[in-house]
Each structure stands twice: as structure tokens, then as C-alpha cells.
Design a protein around this nucleic acid. Structure first.
Lengths: 216, 216
DNA sequence: ACGAGCATACCGACCGGTTGGTATGTCGCA
DNA sequence: TGCGACATACCAACCGGTCGGTATGCTCGT
């Protein structure tokens, strides 16, 4: 979902190095296949450092989801789409930003929280809850703009909360479909899915596109 | 995505028992966290039987995706939604069937191929390809009906292939969001997402619902 | 100003158990 | 008799985690 730079500063402590290593390795191969030794090698620290900062591998997973939340949340909170005057333009601006972030192979744009949730939801309630907080936190950040857009356009039959969760649904699903492809074809597939999400919002809100908006 | 019964017959051989155990365990905890010993215990067979039928754990993963393809493909091929006269009704019938299948905790309705793809896409090209075949095979099965519906309704701006992939995108994403919830709330969340998929198709095809159709 | 005591960050060897896989043997059937 | 479908015993490497240690920094008493 979000590449490493420029919004996450270079890690300084062993803890930050381990979390950065965790982002990279979980995106590449998931949580269970990522050993403590893998994380230490990738971070350039020892097992002793690992277990000084994290009580267990599971604790690293929980901290990783929180780290993902704070870095992605910060990124989106400061994105320029907030400056649009109309709520629907802010929502579409968010979707366009998501589109812009999808480049390269899947492990450079996929979601750490969604990836960990997929395999750990039943084996670690702590990781499940931390991943839920991350994903639903991202969804919630969009809810007010969606609610305002619904009020402005008179959209009924659903809720802002439901629509914001749907945004996350399509994003997570887009990442899975992308992973089925060779690395250089993955981003196109993910962007295609986000394109449908945008079109759904255009249809729902009668927001046919920037050009049609200006004609009205 | 599809519960075990009634379309998959009771497994008889050790190989089928292992594949059934694989379906259950991968849905619960993913592929990497599922050991060969886990699979043998769940199947009630020994390691000798496992390695007689499968050259490696990876080979089991490839066979599992193929097994998933054949059982889900057969299920959907014989579903009653094919009987609708209008293409759009067949497409919406498919989506309604998907809705109907979503009951209970996530591990009873999630997709084995999507789950394995998420964590194995970069560590096993054989598993990636087998999962792609499964997911894209499910998508492709819907493509003709979508193409016919597009022709009938005059829908432009996208392709049948793209729309059929979007169906899979939302389904896979719905399963992830569902996994973030407590077991008894999971199905509601997945159904909510599929509801948005349905609404997108209704808006795209001006197919407002069974009642509005009849009025026209 | 300095040294003792303590806390923190980290190192790397080691632990018991698990891992994917191999070797060998047995049994039933054609 | 030979082969397929298993079972059991075993292997080396890996696993998550522990443990005794060193290095460095901080605080406080003298």
C-alpha cells in the first residue's frame, strides 16, 4: 500500500530496524514463513536485541501492525487530497492517490496488516485485533468525507461506514489479484480493480469525472 | 468460499484425505503455518503416505490449488443461476449465490487459493501459478455472461474480463475484512462487501433490482 | 570530579522441540 | 512375484526462545 520512502524516516534503533525488516519480509512472504532469524538478518541485529525489544515473535507481529497503522495513517492524513472543497472530490482524490501508489511488484505496495490478518486471524487474537485496528483505522479516516458526500449528493441505501469499509475491501482484494501475476504485470491488475472502485463511486454519487463536473 | 458439503464427496484415499485436511488447515491458518505433520494428523495418515503421494510440501500446495479449482469450478458450473434467461440476471444470480454461501466463521467460506497466494506468491512460483489458475478460472467462468450483459445493456468503458476479475477482487477482499472480526460478525461484513459489488453491477447495468426489472 | 552501582541495549552460544524429508520395511493384491 | 500404498524410524537443519555475558550511559554519593 505505501512504499518505504519518503514518509517513514530511516530507522535508527534496532527496534525500528526490526520493524522495517518486518514490513519488507511480511510483504514478501507472509508472517509465518518469516522467522526470527530472518528478521534479525534483514535488520542486521542479533536475537538478543530482538528479544530485548519484543517478548515473542507474536509480540513483534502486534507491534508491526501498530507500526503500519501509524506510518500509513500519518501518510494519508497529510495527503493533498484533503484540500479539495467538495467532499466527493476528496473521496475521489483519496482513490486517485491509492492508484498513484500502485507501482512495481506487489511487495512494494501491498498491505502488511491485510497480509498478516489473512493467515494469523485464527492463531493469534492479538495480531487479529491489531490488524483490524490498522485496516479499520484506514477506513474510518475516510468516513467523514464519505458522509458529507452522501449528504450533498442525496445518496441512500448504504452508510458512510459501509462504503469506507468497501474501499478497504477492494484495496485488499486488488493486492491479492496482483500477487497472482508476474511482477511486471501486477500493478496494472491492482490499478484496474481500483479503477472499478472509482467508477462505483462515480456512479453512486453521479460524479462522472472531473470534466463532466465542470460542465455542470 | 465454498463449504465442504455437499459437492465434494467424502474423501476415500489418503491423498483425498490430505487434500481435504489441506483445505481446512490452510483456511484456518494459512499454508506456511501448516506443517506436514499437521496435515497428516488432520487426515489421519502418516508421513509415508504423504510423501508417497506428494513429492514435497510445495507439491501438496500446488495440488491443493488444483483440487480447489476443480471442486469450486464444478460447484459453480452446476449452480441454478445459469437458468436465468437474461445475461444480467445470470450475473446477479452468481453474486446472490456468493452471498448465500457466506455463513459462519471465515474459515468456512474463505478461498484456499486466495489465502495461499497471499503468502506464497514470491516463494513458490508453482503455487502462485496454480492459485492464479484457480482464481482466474473462477473469474473466466463468468466472462461470457458479463459480455452478453454488456452487449444487451450497452455498457462501455470497461471489458467483461475486467469486470469478472473485479468480482474476484471484491470476493477476496471481503474475506480479508471478514477475518478481522470475531467469528460471529465475520459473515455480515463479507456479505456487506458483496452487497456493494451487487450494487455496482446494478448501477453499471441499470438493473435496479428484481422488482424494478418487472416494472419495465 | 570520580567511582560505584544500576539500567539499558545488545551479543552470540545454546536449548529442547519441530521441521521437511529420507530410508527401510510390511502388507495386500493382481 | 512384483508393485503400490502405506507405516515406522530416523536424519540434519531450523525453529522460537533462553541465558550468561559485554559495552555503554546515567545517577548519586563521596
Amino acid at each position: 500500500m505505501i512504499p518505504n520512502r519518503p514518509f517513514r524516516p530511516a530507522p535508527r534503533s534496532a527496534r525500528d530496524k526490526l520493524l522495517e525488516a518486518g514490513v519488507r519480509l511480511v510483504r514478501e512472504q507472509g508472517f509465518a514463513a518469516t522467522s526470527v532469524d530472518d528478521l534479525c538478518r534483514a535488520a542486521g541485529v542479533t536475537k538478543g536485541a530482538f528479544f530485548h525489544h519484543f517478548a515473542s515473535k507474536e509480540a513483534l507481529g502486534v507491534a508491526l501492525a501498530a507500526y503500519w497503522s501509524s506510518s500509513t495513517g500519518g501518510f494519508f492524513a497529510e495527503a493533498p487530497y484533503h484540500h479539495h472543497a467538495r467532499p466527493i472530490d476528496r473521496v475521489l482524490g483519496y482513490i486517485d492517490l491509492r492508484l498513484a501508489l500502485i507501482t512495481g511488484p506487489p511487495e512494494t505496495f501491498s498491505c502488511v496488516a491485510g497480509t498478516m490478518l489473512q493467515e494469523s486471524f485464527r492463531t493469534s487474537d492479538a495480531i487479529r485485533a491489531a490488524c483490524e485496528a490498522s485496516i479499520m483505522g484506514n477506513a474510518a479516516a475516510l468516513e467523514d468525507d464519505i458522509a458529507a458526500a452522501m449528504a450533498e449528493a442525496g445518496v441512500t441505501g448504504t452508510t458512510a461506514a459501509s462504503l469506507s469499509r468497501h474501499v478497504q475491501t477492494v484495496i485488499q482484494g486488488a493486492f491479492i489479484l496482483a500477487k497472482s501475476q508476474a511482477p511486471d504485470a501486477a500493478a496494472d491488475l491492482a490499478r484496474e480493480a481500483i479503477g472499478h472502485l472509482r467508477r462505483y463511486f462515480e456512479l453512486l454519487f453521479n460524479a462522472g469525472g472531473d470534466e463532466e463536473e465542470k460542465m455542470q
